[in-house]
Computed example of a mutant assay.
Amino acid sequence: MNNEKRRNHFLCEALHDIKELQDVMKDFHSKYFGQLLVKIVGSDTIPFFLITHDGTHLKLMDTIKQFETEFFRIEAIDREHCRGTVSLLRAYDYEGHDTNLIADVVRLERTSTKKSIELCGISAIQLLKPDMLKGKFIIEPKW
């Protein structure tokens, strides 16, 4: 297996694992505690960004809501063709404005926009904290 195929194989497997974890969080139901796992984690989404071969983050555009993002949620993975379907996560800064600067992101919001991507142009996956979907943050006083 050459390096490109091996890398694509690992990316497909990693995204498949993320999808399975999301499904466990979403579908786990206890007869006594309901959806306790989602309540503990705070979300059924594992957010991530994708790094391309040239070292930049993959950015996709939502043409209807007019925003660009580099934050995603895996919705489906085609391991045979090494393609993924992602939903776009909209990133907001402290003031509620769109941002793609990871240092400024305080909240990620799931959207209904889905895009299909070929993983042959992707080198790496970087997971983010699911807490970013809760939108809770504490501002400590300066003095």
Rank of each mutant, 00 (worst) to 15 (best):
M1P: 15
M1R: 14
M1C: 14
M1T: 11
M1I: 08
N2I: 04
E4K: 14
K5Y: 07
K5G: 13
R6F: 06
H9F: 05
L11M: 05
C12N: 12
C12W: 01
E13P: 14
A14R: 07
L15Q: 03
H16Y: 12
I18D: 02
K19C: 10
E20L: 13
E20Y: 12
L21F: 07
Q22M: 12
D23F: 06
V24L: 14
M25V: 15
M25D: 11
M25K: 11
F28C: 15
H29R: 15
S30L: 11
K31T: 14
G34C: 15
G34D: 04
Q35V: 13
Q35I: 11
L36D: 12
L37D: 11
V38N: 15
V38M: 15
K39H: 15
V41F: 09
S43L: 10
D44W: 04
P47S: 12
F48L: 11
F49I: 04
T52R: 09
H53C: 05
D54T: 00
G55D: 00
T56Q: 10
L58Y: 02
L58G: 06
D62P: 08
D62V: 03
T63G: 14
T63H: 10
T63F: 06
Q66R: 15
Q66H: 12
F67I: 05
F67T: 06
E70N: 07
F71W: 01
F71V: 10
F72N: 02
R73G: 06
I74L: 03
I74Q: 04
E75M: 08
A76P: 11
A76L: 07
A76K: 11
D78A: 05
D78W: 02
R79F: 13
R79Y: 11
E80Y: 13
H81F: 06
R83I: 02
G84V: 03
T85R: 13
T85W: 00
V86P: 05
V86R: 03
V86K: 02
S87Y: 01
S87R: 08
S87F: 02
L88E: 01
L89E: 00
L89M: 06
L89H: 01
R90T: 05
A91D: 00
A91C: 04
A91N: 03
E95S: 13
G96W: 00
G96Y: 01
H97D: 09
D98A: 12
T99Q: 05
N100K: 09
L101H: 02
L101Q: 05
I102N: 05
I102H: 04
A103R: 12
D104Y: 00
V105P: 09
V106H: 05
L108C: 03
E109T: 04
E109Q: 12
E109A: 10
E109R: 06
T111S: 09
K114Y: 03
K115E: 05
L119E: 00
L119T: 02
G121N: 07
I122N: 00
I122A: 01
I122V: 09
Q126G: 06
L128N: 02
K129V: 04
D131Q: 10
M132E: 01
M132L: 10
L133A: 07
L133Y: 02
K134I: 03
K134N: 14
K134H: 09
K134Y: 01
G135K: 04
K136E: 04
K136V: 12
F137K: 12
I138D: 02
I138F: 13
I139V: 12
E140H: 10
P141F: 00
K142C: 09
W143T: 13
